[in-house]
Amino acid sequence: MERFATFALVAGILFFAFGTFWQAVAPWLTLRGIPMKSMDEVAREVPPEFYMLANQYPEEFKKYFGEPNERSFKEALELGKKVYIAEACWHCHTQQVRPVSNEEFRFGRVSYPSEYANAMQLPQLLGTRRVGPDLMRESGRHSNDWHMAHFKNPPAVTPGSVMPSYPWFFDEKGRPNKKGLAMVAYMQWLGSWERKPMYALKGGE
């Protein structure tokens, strides 16, 4: 019984394969029917705040992204995600609304699998710790200039905030640079697909 091959093959490989099947492969098989959205498809729906960004910071926007359209939105999203990961934002902010602990009231609709089936969640950014609030329904919750002021100095906007400031999102004159614009675009994208219908005429809210 207590032979090298037993430990290597049964414990090392067989048990690992079994556990990994249930915990990693099976969920993947269950969810594989959900079509995966590419970056181009994701960037097709541009939230109003992105157009507003181009008007609010016209010189900077023109310099870094040109015109506000699907192409520049895609570029901004890609960079925004990169910065979000590099700054480890995902260690203090989650991107999932759970069906418990009144999170539906606080953040909005409970997360569901298909909203993660896109290139922006590769790698996934669900997160495991919340020092700051969840961001999965962030779109439209705060304005572009609020985000800019907040990145520059969080406690100025939210007294008592423990979030660090990010002066490297801004140039010497305190205007946003490419990273700053991209981060705000990314914030305004998160959850933009779940915003309440605005100005619904009949049967709307």
């Binding site: 556990g19 990994t20 915990q23 990693a24 969920p27 993947w28 969810l31 594989r32 995966m36 699998p113 993660y116 089936a117 896109n118 290139a119 969640q121 590769l122 790698p123 996934q124 669900l126």
Partner: peptide, 12 residues
């Protein structure tokens, strides 16, 4: 593996 299935793998 994106999104939720990716999260299962990450958790593992």
């Amino acid at each position: 593996v994106p999104g939720i299935a990716g999260a299962a793998i990450t958790g593992t």
